[in-house]
């Protein structure tokens, strides 16, 4: 049973590699597909990577909303960083914040870290995989409100991603802990 299922997963990986190969060659022909299949098998054998644990769940609506929010944030925040570079006033101090994620899955942590790095304002500096903690450096973050705002952004990213492709355990963790910032804010909100 395991062999069969992992063979299917292997096929999925090979399919995506073949797709990439065909896209590189800019034409769909039998020759390209065959050479793509051969190369995909060779690559996955030679460059052995540990398997990615998917959650088996993909919600297209939430994924779409994540994509749109991502694009929107990318544009807004790129303009913001550009503004910081251009304005005559110097940029303030940054800070390194720790965000204890609710998810425990490797893939989701990686995606949250990637997204937080792409959306200007934060870059991922380190991560603690065993505990599920991400450490990010935030630009221009020299007051408590900005630190809280940065943390809320990261948790928002995580929430969107869990809804889009988190496992059921992650969804349960999300329900248990819908607002991890409550104690930090002191319940003042």
């Amino acid at each position: 049973m395991t062999k069969r299922r992992s063979f299917v997963q292997q096929l999925v990986l090979v399919f995506f590699l073949v797709l990439l190969w065909v896209m590189l060659w800019d034409a769909v022909s039998l020759m390209h597909i065959i050479t793509g299949i051969i190369l995909a098998f060779v690559v996955t054998r030679v460059f052995y990577l540990p398997p990615v644990v998917l959650s088996g769940r993909f919600n297209i609506i939430h994924a779409l909303s994540y994509g749109l929010w991502f694009l929107y944030s990318l544009i807004i925040a790129s303009v913001e960083v550009a503004w910081y570079a251009f304005r005559p006033r110097a940029v303030g101090a940054g800070s390194v914040i720790a965000c204890d994620l609710r998810t425990s899955s490797d893939l989701l942590m990686t995606l949250v870290a990637d997204t937080a790095s792409l959306i200007p304002g934060s870059i991922i500096v380190d991560s603690d995989r065993a505990l599920g903690v991400l450490y990010l450096h935030v630009l221009d973050c020299d007051s408590e409100e900005k630190v809280l705002a940065a943390k809320e952004l990261v948790y928002h990213i995580e929430e969107l991603l869990i809804k889009a492709l988190g496992s059921h355990r992650d969804l349960a963790a999300l329900k248990v802990n819908p607002d991890p910032m409550a104690d930090e804010r002191g319940g003042a909100r």
Binding site: L74, I75, A77, S78, V81, A82, Y84, A85, F86, A90, V91, G94, S117, L118, P120, G121, I123, V125, H137, L139
Partner: peptide
């Protein structure tokens, strides 16, 4: 490039170098 020039810290310069590049 301007951010690379003006920011005073390695980590801040990394923000400036990577982010606008994507857009």
């Amino acid at each position: 490039a301007l951010g690379l020039l003006r920011f005073g810290d390695l980590l801040s310069r990394m923000h400036a170098s990577a982010k606008p590049q994507i857009l």
